[in-house]
């Protein structure tokens, strides 16, 4: 396959276009994903925060965390409101699950890593992942300022991917169409832009052939370059003739003897 000039230019352009598209696409996607997951997180943080507030208000009334029976109903109510919520758990600082929308797990233990965010004692929500679910949680602080436990909300980790998957497919289709269109456009346009170069090269080659081999007089060039080239053709022609004449003369002299 011959690599014509226009093909080389098109390939260079399309290579740049493709990498730029991939780069902007990836960056845009990451940004969008982070904004969206922030948004999802902030919504669930809010839900968790309302539960935390209710629990802490009751703790302030002087009740023990494990004695707050209404919390179970509260958690179940919040879960019922949003089908995406997989579950809400309240565990204490000994990792024991005190309340859970999945009542079967009450009394079991959460992984020890779930205690780590509690030591930070921040008021900012923390995030955890657990198998295929994502968790957002807040520590529960008693009136002494000590962490008694935490409330966490569980939602599918693939939630974002599901949301984004369809969107990405649609965009990928458009991506391909636009790329293809650009490819066709750039090949045609590059070929058109380089037409002049191509034509003049062909013209000069013809001049060369005509002038050197057939001795036709060269047309004057359009610019300095072609002018130089025409002079070159003339000189080459002249040289061919001179050498030819010289050869003839040498031959004549050779025969003379």
């Amino acid at each position: 396959m011959a690599w014509s000039l226009s093909r080389k230019v098109s390939v260079a352009l399309l290579g740049i276009l493709l990498s730029t598209m991939v780069m902007t696409g990836a960056f845009g996607y990451y940004k969008f994903q982070s904004v969206l997951s922030d948004q999802v997180n902030s919504r669930y943080s809010f839900v968790v925060f309302t539960i935390k507030r209710k629990i802490e208000d009751r703790l302030a009334l002087g009740l023990a965390l494990r004695a707050l029976r209404q919390i179970q109903e509260l958690a179940e109510l919040e879960k019922a409101r949003d089908s995406q919520i997989l579950g809400i758990q309240i565990y204490d600082s000994n990792r024991e699950v005190l309340f859970d929308t999945d009542r079967g797990t009450i009394g079991s233990r959460v992984p020890s890593t779930w205690l780590e965010p509690l030591s930070a004692q921040g008021t900012q929500p923390f995030s955890l992942t657990d198998e295929d679910s994502a968790l957002v949680g807040l520590p529960l602080v008693n009136t002494l300022g000590k962490v008694e436990g935490a409330v966490v909300l569980r939602y599918p980790a693939t939630y974002l991917e599901q949301e984004l998957g369809r969107l990405l497919q649609r965009l990928a289709g458009e991506f391909a169409v636009v790329l293809l269109g650009s490819a066709v456009l750039s090949v045609i346009a590059a070929s058109w832009l380089l037409r002049d170069v191509r034509q003049r090269l062909v013209a000069m080659e013809n001049t060369l052939n005509q002038s050197v081999t057939k001795g036709a007089p060269a047309k004057p060039g359009r610019d300095a370059f072609e002018g130089d080239f025409v002079r070159f053709c003339g000189k080459a022609r002249e040289a061919v003739e001179q050498i030819g004449e010289a050869s003839d003369e040498v031959e004549r002299l050779d025969r003379l003897a």
Partner: peptide, 13 residues
């Protein structure tokens, strides 16, 4: 008022 439970916690503290 102060409830007795947090008083107990504070005493333990």
């Amino acid at each position: 008022v102060c409830r007795y439970y947090p008083v107990g916690q504070l005493t333990a503290y």
